[in-house]
Simulated assay, not measured.
Amino acid sequence: MNIDWHGVYPAITTKFNEDESLDLDTFRDHLRVQVEAGIHGIILAGSLGEASTLNREEKLQLLDTALDEVGDEIPVLLNIAESTQRDAIQLTKEAEVKGASGIMLLPPMQYKADKREVVSYFKAVAEATDLPILIYNNPVDYGIEVTLDMFEELIEYDNIQAVKESTRDLTNVTRMKNRFGDRIKILCGVDTLAMEAMVMGACGWVAGLVSAFPDETVAIYELVKAGRIEEAREIYRWFMPLLELDINSKLVQNIKLAEVATGVGTEHVRKPRLPLIGEELEHVQSVISESLEKRPKLPEIQQPVSSR
């Protein structure tokens, strides 16, 4: 499946049973809710998907399940966040064999690689696969920035096609457009900057709160792309207190509580994460409940066939 890198790509949560085993039935149900809301692709086993707690077999099990459930309807990407180049290449090759549409690729984990090492790592993975690659650029959380000069080296590989732009610097969208035009497709990776990034030319949104509020997330994207900025802005302003739950170290717990509130998931997380308690829990529940009370009626949106 080709990827055109436009639209809303949920970095979907991983569903667990109370004993921390994978809850694939709830995972399937959640995938179906997302697709029915009009999302454009799915990313498995990312940070929000608790990648650091998943072993290789579980990541591939999630991929098999997602491909079985929705693989013919939308692109299904597997996140590659490994500590060694060898492991990254192995998992990428396994994902390709199983039928993944593409991968999201992070710099090496644990070791803080320098620019030369990061470029070499990305090139090695790109050379090992024909899958389309979405580079994840998040220096705030991972301590490594993929600079424009680094992208200049990477674009010699046709399958390095897009970036999840999470630098928190909105001007980076314009810098990338000025330097590379449409060669590198830009998807905003920060919920609280998504509308601004799309107005400035980003192609889409790798989203977090979409897991609980897919209709609103898709509506904002479609309205912005249709030039209906005022309508999108009204929804976005309502959404902002919820979106701020994503830029938090407890984003997984926060978003899973939102999924419970909207009836599309459970709050089960895998240790070392623990369910929220005390003032933290009260604050998140308050944000969610107040937002649900004011949940807006969405306007009619004509979704073009090409956007699905």
Rank of each mutant, 00 (worst) to 15 (best):
L274Y: 13
L274I: 15
E300V: 15
Q303C: 12
Y157G: 00
H40Q: 15
K98T: 02
Q253F: 09
L242V: 12
D169T: 14
L106N: 11
N178L: 15
Q34D: 06
A207V: 13
L298A: 06
I74M: 13
D68P: 01
V218W: 02
A11Q: 08
N55E: 14
K123W: 03
P299A: 06
R175V: 09
I135L: 11
S249F: 04
I3M: 11
L67E: 08
Q285C: 10
L131P: 10
R233H: 10
L245H: 10
D68F: 10
M195A: 08
N248E: 14
A219F: 03
L223E: 05
A51L: 12
I103L: 08
E293R: 12
I186W: 04
L223F: 05
T65Y: 09
E82Q: 13
N159T: 10
I74F: 04
Q90M: 13
T92Y: 07
T53R: 04
R183M: 05
G278H: 02
I160C: 03
R308P: 02
I89S: 02
A124W: 00
S101L: 04
E267I: 09
S21F: 04
V118N: 03
Q110A: 11
G41P: 10
A88I: 14
T171I: 13
E152S: 05
E57L: 14
Y221K: 02
T174G: 08
L77Y: 02
S249P: 09
A219G: 12
I247W: 08
N79G: 14
A197M: 11
L298R: 07
R308E: 12
V163F: 00
R270N: 07
E165H: 01
L245I: 13
K15S: 14
A162I: 05
E73T: 15
P108Q: 12
E244P: 05
Q302D: 15
E82T: 07
R308D: 08
T174N: 11
E153D: 13
V206I: 15
M1A: 10
P139F: 07
E145W: 07
A232R: 04
P296L: 05
S211D: 11
E280I: 02
A113R: 07
G201S: 04
R86G: 02
L223N: 01
A128H: 01
V119F: 04
G46M: 09
S47C: 09
Y9K: 08
I255V: 13
V33G: 00
K93W: 09
S249V: 10
H6V: 13
K164E: 06
K93I: 11
G201D: 01
S47F: 13
V119N: 06
Y136F: 07
R273W: 12
T192L: 03
T65Q: 05
D19S: 00
K256C: 03
L31Q: 07
V269W: 01
E50N: 05
A45M: 11
I80G: 03
P299Q: 01
T26Q: 15
L251A: 11
V284C: 00
G102R: 01
A261Y: 02
A194L: 03
L243E: 13
S307P: 01
V206T: 14
D158Q: 04
G181I: 09
Y136T: 07
C203M: 08
S52V: 15
F122S: 09
R168Y: 13
M240H: 06
L131Q: 06
I42Y: 14
I184E: 07
T13L: 15
L63N: 02
L292Y: 07
N55L: 12
K115I: 14
M240V: 12
W5V: 11
R116M: 06
